[in-house]
Design a protein around this nucleic acid. Sequence first.
DNA 1: TATAGTTATCTAGATTAATAGACATTTGGA
DNA 2: TCCAAATGTCTATTAATCTAGATAACTATA
Lengths: 245, 245
Amino acid sequence: MTGTKLVERQSGIALWRQIADRMRLSINNGEFDGTGMMPPEKTLAERFGVNRHTVRSALAALADEGIVRPLQGIGTRIERRDRLSFPIARRTRFSQGLGGQARELDGKLIGWREQTAGQTVAEGLAITPDSRCICLETLHSADGRPVSRATNYFPADRFAAIAEEYRTHRSITKALAASGVADYVRRSTEISAAHAGGEDLADLRLSPGAILLVTIAVNVDMDGVPIQYARTRFAADRVKFTVDT
Amino acid sequence: MTGTKLVERQSGIALWRQIADRMRLSINNGEFDGTGMMPPEKTLAERFGVNRHTVRSALAALADEGIVRPLQGIGTRIERRDRLSFPIARRTRFSQGLGGQARELDGKLIGWREQTAGQTVAEGLAITPDSRCICLETLHSADGRPVSRATNYFPADRFAAIAEEYRTHRSITKALAASGVADYVRRSTEISAAHAGGEDLADLRLSPGAILLVTIAVNVDMDGVPIQYARTRFAADRVKFTVDT
DNA sequence: TATAGTTATCTAGATTAATAGACATTTGGA
DNA sequence: TCCAAATGTCTATTAATCTAGATAACTATA
């Protein structure tokens, strides 16, 4: 908080990107809430110790993300500041626990395939590595804005029709219910972070260099049998996790 | 996993840094475990679709972090691949739950001050915003390698000597015990991610652009009274969190 | 010892990022 | 209406990044 070095030169990260990332965080933390406007470009340039053009590049990136909107003659308005809060608990579900935070939640099936489980997934699902499983690639949005992208694995013998169910119901919970799983609980959740890349970048509409929060979760049915292994990538500037113990 | 776009040009992130970040992740995921060596520079350059010099810049950055060591005539050896796993639970403590993962753990007091709580901290500690509290800046290392940096707040009336106790015991748990708190539990943990900057960058010996996992935690004594509000920044490439529910 | 494979170093040029300054355009208010 | 303050656009220059190619130095092995 004190003596904050604002930008690092020759770091391999362009100044405009460092500044854009910092400003996005500031906005999400509500630091400019008084007026709903960004400080003038000239002020920002002085504050970050860079040229005004560099600040403009950063603001252009944020405008591209729809976070700010420049208004000639007036200033730069903040359009959106939000970070959804996801509770992580025994009964974690994507579409719940967001009470009032978003008006609409949606899950979209962007691909699926049947394959052998492989070492890692097999351990999570407590099956043999050569067992067949169904793999669903899903994309989740809040109020039309992509929030996370997940790769879900289900045992093929038990959930042969899971892809079709998900496409219909647009929710894992409902798709599982339609497949005969009335209820389930979260057994374990592992959380890490990484830079976004590849398809995640495009699908989540992130700018390169953005951060992902990655969860690896195992859900079990009420008999304790694993039914779902999921690797979910959240856009870190749009979410936070809360763990109540 | 399929059709992975490897590097993004004109993204504001230098190619060598994107490649360094990807290779660090690969190393930590144990992808080159067979030989303990990186693939030759020529191979990496082809794989990433860049010039060999660009790959060399990335490898130089990793060598600087002590992750790889170039050996002329032989190749580039992987020196270290580790990501500590921190369990997050009701009884979360930094210095425990790492059984066998590191030989030595250490907490260092890098600064402290007395101040008024302020809005956010006051809410966590359930006190009034103008109450006095002690603020400790601490740095935590595993096997001599910095892992996290924390800002800890304690109510001043109850823990006047906490700074001195921490300096002596180098552990929050022991410092609290010396201040009359025999036991305590974690009430809530909030997890988010951000780019590292400022003092965190230097103290955690990170290269700019690195990711932090940020936890905001509240600990309470056995009567349920909040005793500690902590904001901890973990070097994301060195840790992961596990939440068992 | 000879050779193949690897990292180390050097030069040169092209592309991208950042700085500097001037001026145009738009808006709101005195 | 006029002015101050803000964003928009343009040119020019410097610094950082990336590519390209050649060659040296080192290591292990046949």
